[in-house]
Design a protein around this nucleic acid. Sequence first.
RNA 1: GGGCUCGUGGCUUAGCCAGGAUAUAGCGCUGGGCUUCUAACCCAGACGUCGGGGGUUCAAAUCCCUUCGAGCCCGCCA
Length: 572
Amino acid sequence: MISLFLELKAQAASILKDAIMKAGFEIEDSELHFETSPHADLASRAAFKLAGLYKQNPKELASRIVSEIEIPEGSYVGEVAAVGPYINFRAGRSYLDRTVAAVREEQEKFGCGAPKDKILLEHTSANPNGPLHVGHIRNSILGDTLARILKRAGYDVEVQYYVNDMGRQIAVVSWACERFELDLSKKSDSAIADVYIKANVELEKNPEYVKEIDALMEKVEAGDVKTIESFDEAVSLAVAGIKETLLRMNVVHDEFVKESLFLKSGAVHDIVERIKATGRTKIDKGALVVDLADYGFEKTLVIQRSNGTSLYTTRDLAYHEWKATQADRVIDVFGADHKLISGQLRATLNAIGLKEPEVVIFEFVSLPEGSMSTRRGQFISADELFDRVTAAALDQVETRRPETSAEFKKEVSEMVGMGAVRYDIVRVSPEKSTVFNWKEALDFEKQGAPYIQYSHARACSILEKAREEAAWDPAAAVSPSLLVEDSEIDLIKKMAMFDSIIDFCAQELKPHVLAIYARELADSFNQFYRFVPVLVAEDPQVRAARLALVDCARIVLANALDTLGIGAPESM
RNA sequence: GGGCUCGUGGCUUAGCCAGGAUAUAGCGCUGGGCUUCUAACCCAGACGUCGGGGGUUCAAAUCCCUUCGAGCCCGCCA
């Protein structure tokens, strides 16, 4: 079904356009300039535009246009008024009633769009040389939330993690596993990081070891079975740990695709030949480089080392070629350090006539002492963050709900803690760089995930009580028109926005907008909760309508939380 | 040195691409509210040269120029 809010906007546009024509002016649809505003459900600045075109006073134009307004029977538009140069539209009763009905009908499907194209989304793809750290999870959370938004918007989304199983860093890991003992009493990715860090210290001290690393890489590229096996072993250990961390975050990948696949299949060789065929390549100090000057890149892109081996970039080109055949759209979530290389990757793909990925870039998360680095052992692991956050959440549950079972406390603290982490990261727009701070990460006394979850739990609690009193049937017919309090109307209007928010986020690839919406929705519900009694409402019809509204709020809050990948506890 | 991104009350942050109504919200601060459906809540208040300077425009946080500050990139690493 079509989005309620977008339908309201479409109806407002048509009404406004008719009135403008009747007033004797002409205007393009794109010049109606609708916006949401605190003064109206929809406000048009069209009078400003016409004032410029017809050299007249915008205030007078607005009131003249409004005097020509005719609202058709059954329209979602309730009233239109000129306030200064603005033309303000207010949604009518049918819009509110229709919203309540739609949420009750569609339940967990509310906000879902019509089926759309296939999208292949890649995110996280951290090197398997250690555990995920707090920088990586910005990628995971952004990517996973995006995937959830796109799915709800109607896209057929497949999510992939691209596993570097043959780069230089993995050669170092493999070399490290031979040289140092793995402490397998630890989580496997953390054990890998330990030896990887040691190996890097060793390599710094004795640069001649670099030759051993080079030799390993050449062997892998040549298909040496034993070396490949030892790489695989190390990679599997790291990936197993990474998967555990992702699972705890509620981040889902459909497929883990290994880089080496594209070398084995010959795809890397083939794509190098095709790039050569464009005449853009040349040999620079023995290495094969691509000239992308006409795409605005000063520096050439190296796609083959002087010893003939491939690079990450080369294999990534082959991976992207394959992805292009798998889906209508390809989306990559990368850190800011990939800005240049992803631009060069896109240019190269374009040069050989392949579909380019849409790249979502997020800026860095650093520590007060500087940027994070697995190699130098300077990072805070995601696991440590999760442990400390859920422990802090458990403290809260223990003081707030001492009477509950240990199992309940554990479950709720996991939901609240992980929700807090996800929300904290997704609420900030990706182009903002951030500095990680423990005090802030462990602080629940702010309008974050727990606030939204709490609103959901409150709604559930009311419904549970109503059920206990055997006085509520969720499917019973009600009259939404009885919902006339300001806070009721605000809440309904906020719920009606959900599908257009999903739509916007999917179009702009901006998950933080949904995070903000979810908080505003919780705000609206909490205000309703504070000012409007539900269970003790005197009129049974009003009580039934309000229970239906609480149920609607529960549904939309749950849908919003689900799209953010955050658990929705029924009690907390 | 060159490129990209960011700079909004003490702190965090929305709005900027598609310029317009008193600049968004949270934390913190001040004051108030649980005999009423979970107070992880609600209400009220104080706090702002939208980094600085110039320009375009009837109108600039938003567009253009310039300058300062921070982050990232400019590897035969990924």
